[in-house]
């Protein structure tokens, strides 16, 4: 199952392979976002992170984000891969690649994708600190989802 545009994997992610997936003769720009594991958050020192996903649904939600982007910015091509399992400091957790005829939509769509991942994709991370561990939720400080569910329809979150 190589060459899936929206994927949850357990092995390291190749940034180059995502760039290849979105290459297009009509593209004038490709942006990539690379999310990596940070060591220091506030005063806590992370030893490693553990990511878990509801894999089939997570891939569907990533595909939906791709669809939303195609609707908002025409002629874009999107590929997203998120890694799960144990990740060390500086390892790549997520890569988003967007190609577009012009640079601005490529930048905007790429940022839109990471924001949406943090809203609707069922992936969770567990921080392993030197003195303990905890599952992290609520990164966007949405303590409760409004209306009982995250907005999975196309909406302006810019």
């Amino acid at each position: 199952m190589r060459n899936k545009m929206f994927e949850i994997v357990e092995e390291p992610i190749s940034v180059e392979s995502l760039i290849e997936k979105v290459k297009d003769r009509n593209a004038g720009a490709i942006t990539t976002f690379i999310g990596t594991v940070r060591e220091i958050t506030g005063e806590k020192k992370t030893v490693y992170l553990e990511y878990q996903a509801y894999k089939p649904m997570a891939e569907k939600m990533l595909a939906q984000i791709g669809k939303e982007i195609n609707q908002k910015w025409s002629d874009t091509k999107v590929a997203i891969t998120h890694r799960i399992g144990s990740l060390d400091i500086s390892e790549i957790a997520v890569v988003i690649a967007v190609s577009s005829p012009h640079r601005k939509p490529a930048y905007q769509a790429n940022e839109y994708a990471i924001e949406r991942i943090k809203q609707i994709v069922p992936i969770w991370k567990k921080e392993q600190w030197e003195d303990g561990e905890a599952w992290i939720g609520d990164q966007l400080e949405n303590v409760r989802y409004r209306a009982g569910k995250p907005d999975v329809k196309d909406e302006d979150h810019d």
């Binding site: 649904m57 943090k118 994709v121 969770w124 939720g137």
Partner: peptide, 26 residues
């Protein structure tokens, strides 16, 4: 069945339900 549901939606025998705590991907 892998799609977000509303509070009043009905779940039937044979359905697969997932409880999704606040997500933290990325």
């Amino acid at each position: 069945n892998e799609a977000y549901a509303l509070e009043d939606d009905i779940i039937r025998s044979g359905d697969t339900v997932a409880i999704i705590p606040p997500v933290s991907g990325g």
